[in-house]
Design a protein around this nucleic acid. Structure first.
Lengths: 207, 207
DNA sequence: GTCTATACAAGGATAGAC
DNA sequence: GTCTATCCTTGTATAGAC
């Protein structure tokens, strides 16, 4: 008996390597050594596989945010959060990017409606930056917070798209380090002296 | 006799409204009141339509850069350049975003190889920022220039993707104004007093 | 050169036997 | 739970009319 887990693992591997739209269900079934009909039995639509993987990705990310909230609000912890998210985005890049292709259909399913997800994420980042301000890590007014939220929302959503336009499987650690350093630099533009020390502390830990 | 221009116009309209992958060649032919075979005669592959539209888009953008280089290097002129580019990206959003979907195939055709295009664009922005520094508009060292180039490259490539994830046809002027204001803010973080005046000058001209 | 009609291949989806 | 056979849609290619 084939487990859903096996299908998802192989599907993610293929999506990452060749892109969601390039992977056919017949081919996926062949790689799994099962019939196309059997694959259909477990996931009646190709999109269902995408959804299941997005579910995994989403759950993992939620746990990262939850964990962050238990820590003291420092720039270093914030960057560590971003590092975890970036790693996760890299691991799920095939579905994360492919997500865009099927947004039209996903709009219906509120679970993955981009508008509601983006709104929640923006609110989360707004709170995070407010806390960092209160903790003396950032020197920002509300306008600056909105700017940083807009920055991190777009940047955090599309860095992996840019990275994989060059190369579908770029060096994971090198690529993440590069984009993390850009986030760190952006943050440092609004950091207090204390906050800058925290950023340096994080930066030296990843090099 | 149907002109290639008519096909491209209708195709762009459809790609913008419904997305590249959602528009079928048969349907496009029906909308143009011609047979699918006739469409094949003018553009033997669907991708050829995409390429022709990207060609138009690319030519238009080049003219914007060329024009900018004839002007005095000021932040206001730079932002005016970005405004033109943003307008163009919006108008071609269907192919601009769809571009990502077919990158795998486009990698072969050097004309639209993302790596070479991105490298050229990065070099262009690097020169622009260096000139703005020399003209006393920006206060930046080479590291800051690299940071700004990385920022404008990613932001300028993906703002339209973010905007259309919410709504395939968001209000053009409102959306562009929003994203331009983010660019202006980012630029102001590195601007001299003189440079800030130039940014304000531009900002007041678009509100 | 311009167009229609048609055939073919590939991929997603489904019905029904076992 | 697994398979085979089949259907439908979509991109693509081509024969042949005008």
């Amino acid at each position: 008996m084939i487990k859903k887990e096996e299908i998802l693992r192989k599907a993610l591997e293929q999506f990452n390597e060749r892109g969601y739209s390039e992977v056919g269900v017949r081919e996926l079934a062949r790689l799994l050594k099962i019939s196309p009909g059997n694959l259909s039995y477990h996931f009646s639509k190709k999109e269902d596989i995408l959804m299941a993987l997005l579910e995994q990705f989403s759950a993992q990310n939620s746990s990262f945010y939850d964990h962050y909230l238990t820590l003291a609000p420092t720039n270093a912890h914030f960057l560590a959060l971003m590092e975890k998210i970036f790693n996760s985005q890299y691991d799920y890049r095939g579905v994360y990017i492919g997500n865009q292709f099927v947004q039209a259909e996903l709009q219906n399913q509120d679970r993955f409606n981009y508008q509601s997800i983006a709104a929640k994420r923006a609110a989360t980042f707004q709170n995070i930056f407010r806390e960092l301000e209160a903790a003396g890590q950032l020197r920002v007014d509300e306008k600056n917070i909105d700017f940083l939220v807009a920055y991190i929302t777009l940047f955090g959503r599309f860095w992996i798209s840019e990275a994989t336009l060059f190369n579908r499987s770029p060096d994971k650690h090198k690529t993440i380090r590069h984009y993390l350093s850009l986030v760190a630099k952006q943050l440092s533009l609004f950091a207090t002296e204390e906050g800058k020390k925290s950023i340096d502390e994080f930066s030296s830990s990843i090099t």
